[in-house]
């Protein structure tokens, strides 16, 4: 598999984690592509316009990339913080539609602001890595950190508060969980992750335009999570990897490609309503691994 496709798959997995975070506390937010686009514009503008970030023009220094990712994540996070409180009062489908509206507003701004390059966007973003392989390793590390944080969350008070809100928001509030604050943290964390991912993606794709954050992307990233399963971080990661690869792997079928992709999106939830990664399958996997480890222990004892 070529490194460029692998990199896109990893970026897809990061975006899936960004959708998963609010969903972990029951909030269906489709704002991820909007924040992703914002992060990408931060990186694109800084690395093509500000000498300190631009490097030699064709290549840019790695610390500049890290700084752009931090700034892209921070700007996305600030936007989320500013709108989070009122927006998160909305529930279910209302929240989903409000976040679609946010994505569209950001898209129209990105298309029309005087410094974002209009419909063509921003070109010639310098490369911090010489080969796609460098991006892959870097993104893999980022994905590992993000996954580890999600895993850690399960053990923390915050993570349990999020799970409690997903199961029953009123009950969670009645046992003293600050539900608006918890939801806001999840929403801002989701935005920061999407912003960071966007900053990295802008370099990788070499150009950035308003199409990065569209309604289509909202639903596609949601499909990542629904496909993989929304209960455990491994689900969105697998969903993001698989569904990003699918249209590319279907390229040989030519014109039928997107029709088949649509069929997969249509049929997936019908056959796997819980997603691919479910609690039972994880337990099953753990049991299998445990048994083989157990056998390994017994092996020396048998004569």
């Amino acid at each position: 598999m070529d490194a460029a496709l692998l990199e896109q798959m990893l970026l897809g997995a990061l975006l899936a984690l960004s959708v998963y975070l609010p969903l972990r506390c029951g909030q269906l937010s489709l704002a991820t592509p909007g924040f992703y686009a914002v992060g990408g514009y931060v990186a694109a503008l800084l690395s093509t316009g500000v000498p300190a970030f631009a490097g030699s023009g064709a290549t840019s220094p790695l610390p500049a990339l890290l700084a752009e990712m931090a700034l892209g994540g921070a700007l996305a996070g600030l936007i989320a913080l500013a709108i989070g409180r009122p927006v998160l009062r909305l529930r279910g489908i209302y929240l989903a539609i409000a976040t679609i509206a946010l994505v569209e507003i950001l898209r129209v701004l990105n298309l029309n602001l005087p410094f974002t390059g209009g419909a063509m966007g921003i070109f010639g973003i310098p490369q911090p890595f010489e080969h796609a392989g460098g991006y892959v390793l870097f993104t893999l590390a980022l994905l590992a950190v993000a996954s580890w944080l999600c895993q850690r969350l399960e053990a923390l008070r915050l993570g349990r508060a999020m799970a409690a809100i997903r199961d029953d928001e009123l009950a969670a509030a009645s046992v003293g969980i600050d539900t608006p604050r918890t939801k806001l943290i999840a929403f801002v964390a989701s935005a920061v992750l999407a912003g960071i991912t966007g900053a990295l993606a802008a370099h990788f794709f070499n150009s950035w335009n308003a199409r990065a954050g569209s309604f289509d992307a909202s639903i596609t990233t949601l499909a990542f999570v629904v496909f993989g399963g929304s209960r455990f971080w491994l689900g969105p990661v697998l969903g993001g990897l698989a569904l990003t690869a699918l249209p590319e792997l279907l390229r040989p079928v030519g014109d039928l490609r997107l029709i088949l992709f649509g069929a997969v999106i249509l049929l997936g939830p019908l056959f796997f309503p819980q997603g691919l990664v479910t609690a039972e399958r994880l337990r099953g996997l753990a049991a299998v691994l445990g048994r083989s480890r157990g056998r390994g222990h017994q092996a020396p004892q048998t004569p």
Binding site: I219, L222, A223, I259, G262, I265, L267, P269
Partner: peptide
Amino acid sequence: ITSLGAGVI
């Protein structure tokens, strides 16, 4: 998701 899939098709 399923209705979007139908739309894409």
